[in-house]
């Protein structure tokens, strides 16, 4: 993990006009996150001790299970996953080379795309064919690889939108201010709390479009938390984020886990993944080729061949993989 100093400097260079961000980002993110990592013991430490590091292995307490999920685009089979079981309360990373089908698989899990075959269940209940907007109420919220901040809405409105089951969001109640005023102020209080935690309080009234790339990732994560998810799926949360803010984001992801929220995320950056994940699922050419703890995965020859090897620009003997990474 980076020390405080260089990250502070980075932010200061990036954004000299916002000193609060500098303090906030490091104090609430990198600093607090790092502290949390050191002081609070990992609440799920030991959970994976007895778990077999093979694709599809059962976990002690599964929140999300995908079986035989297949997605074809014409003749191309983008995803063909036999079995993936995600442990509750853990940070699980989904990795794989470019074109491995990570985002497609994510879309299948979250109802943004329908599999041609297969079963996905959340908390033991099948969510096959359940509309994507209904999954938030079931405790599953996702973010997107290309951040979807709602540009022409304020940061606060972004946050307020995240809360589920709002009475005022029904057309029939929308004009009856009295019927939702109380809930609205509760939601607002919660939004303020979360903005505070993500060090974005001072930006509450700004348009979301004015935020930097990293701040948008933070906003998207904070907004997702408004829905009180039990499982949060982050699609490349660190992509395009400056290094100082990466530490802050990582701190927040770990804080989520420490609060009992399950996290499944897609990521490219191997350093990030190795440092933060409790469990790693490796996807290549649409299938799961390996699973395990960071140590197990990084020493797995199949992973090195399919993924890590190509990091150095085609060190792999497999020519096709080399092409994939380019």
């Amino acid at each position: 993990m980076k020390t405080g100093d260089p990250s502070e400097k980075d932010v200061a260079i990036e954004d000299p006009n916002a000193p609060e961000v500098v303090l906030g980002a490091t104090a609430g993110g990198g600093g607090a996150g790092a502290a949390a990592q050191e002081d609070i013991p990992n609440p799920i430490a030991g959970t994976f001790d007895g778990v077999d590091p093979t694709p599809g292995s059962p976990k002690p307490d599964e929140i999300l299970v995908a079986k035989n999920v297949v997605r074809r685009f014409g003749g191309l089979t983008a995803v063909d996953v036999d079995e993936v079981r995600i442990q509750r309360g853990a940070i699980t990373a989904l990795i794989g080379p470019n074109g491995a089908g990570k985002t497609t698989f994510f879309n299948l899990l979250t109802g943004f795309d329908d599999p041609d075959e297969g079963d996905v269940s959340l908390n033991g209940n099948s969510i096959n064919g359940v509309a994507s907007h209904k999954l938030a109420a079931r405790g599953m919220v996702r973010t997107f690889q290309l951040t979807k901040s709602l540009a022409k809405m304020s940061v606060m409105d972004n946050m307020l939108l995240g809360a589920g089951d709002q009475r005022g969001e029904k057309l029939s109640f929308s004009l009856l201010r009295g019927s939702w005023r109380k809930q609205e102020s509760e939601v607002r209080a919660r939004a303020e709390e979360l903005l505070e935690r993500f060090s974005m309080t001072h930006m509450a009234d700004e348009y979301a479009a004015t935020l930097s790339g990293g701040q948008r990732k933070l906003l998207e994560m904070a907004r997702a938390l408004m829905a009180k998810p039990s499982l949060i799926l982050l699609d490349e949360p660190m992509a395009g984020v400056n290094p100082a803010l990466v530490q802050s984001l990582l701190g927040h992801v770990e804080a989520l886990r420490d609060e009992g929220v399950s996290v499944l995320f897609v990521e490219h950056d191997m350093d990030v993944i190795m440092g933060i994940s409790d469990w790693i699922v490796v996807l290549a050419e649409g299938s799961v080729i390996a699973e395990g703890t960071p140590d197990q995965v990084s020493s797995n020859p199949r992973v090195i061949d399919a993924y890590l090897g190509t990091e150095d620009g085609g060190a792999s003997s497999d020519g096709r993989q080399g092409r994939d990474s380019e």
């Binding site: 509309a131 994507s132 979807k148 709602l150 022409k152 939108l161 589920g164 029904k170 997702a224």
Partner: peptide, 23 residues
Amino acid sequence: SPWGRALKSIREDEDAARALGKN
């Protein structure tokens, strides 16, 4: 109203609105 807020979120990004549970 919150209804209008949800409407505007759809204008801005329908997928984000759906991911947050808005029909």
